[in-house]
């Protein structure tokens, strides 16, 4: 069975939470991720690609989440034993 990768929190996850609850570290993560998104988008523009860089494709750590990499929400490993996958 292929290993399920750890869930990567995305920019979209960060932005989906209430701004009222944002601590400075949350805002810093948002800024980091938005700066990364800008850099990735600029790169696409430079090579003439029309690819979008959505907030789901940028991790809260500022890293790009490659297409096709499975992610799962919740932050805990699912118990897949006994399921017909």
């Amino acid at each position: 069975m292929p290993e399920v990768p750890e869930y990567t929190q995305t920019l979209n996850d960060l932005l989906s939470t209430a701004a009222n609850d944002w601590a400075p570290k949350d805002r810093l993560a948002i800024v980091t991720a938005l700066r990364a998104q800008r850099e990735l988008w600029n790169r696409e523009q430079t090579i003439g690609s029309r690819k979008r860089v959505t907030s789901n494709q940028v991790g809260a750590n500022g890293k790009k989440i490659e297409a096709g990499v499975a992610v799962r929400k919740g932050g805990k490993k699912l118990n897949l034993a006994g399921l017909k996958l």
Partner: peptide, 30 residues
Amino acid sequence: CVRLAGLLGEKLPAGDTARRKEQLIRACVW
């Protein structure tokens, strides 16, 4: 300003996908 953008963005009217909370925060930071 990011927090303010989030707070203001949550009050934006629906109806335009390019003018929501996410887009407001991005427009500000970029």
